[in-house]
């Protein structure tokens, strides 16, 4: 119950943290409500896996993990760089609009379209592992549990509490003027990729 309330209470903040990653993707993909729900489910599903890993680690290592330099800098930094690469490649994937970019787009278009489904999966996993204030609270809560099962249950309820805020995002895919929104979403995904790349490099070089 405590975890569910924590999730519900901090869910909006979670939404804001993951927004820059998932919102451009949903806008760019557009599509039906069903497709958007599927994308969000993939995002949340992989985030859930990340949480379960964290639950196990929390119960094995206690609260100290988040304070270790390795986790804060290297792992999170590397995760950001993987995410940024995914977003940048996605932004160039099958663009028909910009002549110069089409060259790269053509190379990428040999990759099956299904590939784009991995964007929410990677994004969900990486954002699930990255440190944000709600996750820090959840981690502390899970670390205080006696067993791995309790810790996992704690994270499960935290996940459920935060997830309810994500599903309304599915309606973003239904916006009018699909072509324009698709373009803006793709550009935003690429720019978000650049931002996460810089963040990742800064973290790894332990600047921030």
């Amino acid at each position: 119950m405590e975890a569910l309330l924590l999730g519900l209470g901090t869910g909006t903040s979670c939404l804001l943290y993951c927004g820059p990653v998932i919102v451009p993707y949903l806008l760019a993909e557009g599509g039906s409500l069903k497709k958007s729900f599927l994308d969000i489910s993939l995002f949340l599903g992989s985030r859930f896996i990340a949480y379960m890993i964290l639950a196990i680690v929390a119960s094995l290592m206690g609260n100290s993990l988040f304070t270790t330099e390795i986790y804060r800098s290297i792992l999170t930094g590397a995760a950001y760089i993987i995410l940024s690469t995914t977003l940048i490649i996605y932004s160039f994937f099958r663009i028909k609009h910009v002549c110069k970019a089409r060259k790269y787009s053509d190379i990428l278009s040999n990759i099956p379209y299904k590939w784009t489904q991995s964007v929410p999966v990677v994004a969900g996993f990486v954002t699930g592992l990255s440190i944000c204030p709600p996750l820090l609270l959840a981690f502390a809560g899970a670390a205080s549990k006696q067993s791995i099962q309790d810790s996992m249950i704690f994270f499960l309820f935290f996940f459920l509490g935060t997830s309810v805020y994500f599903f309304p995002l599915a309606f973003l895919g239904l916006t009018q003027r699909k072509n324009v929104i698709h373009i803006i979403g793709k550009i935003a995904a690429g720019l978000a990729g650049v931002i996460y790349f810089i963040k990742g490099v800064l973290l790894i070089s332990n600047i921030t």
Partner: peptide, 16 residues
């Protein structure tokens, strides 16, 4: 459309 993508990210990241 670039400024609109920048706006989207700037608004979201500032909120975050």
């Amino acid at each position: 459309w670039f400024p609109f993508a920048v706006l989207l990210l700037v608004a979201l990241s500032a909120a975050m």
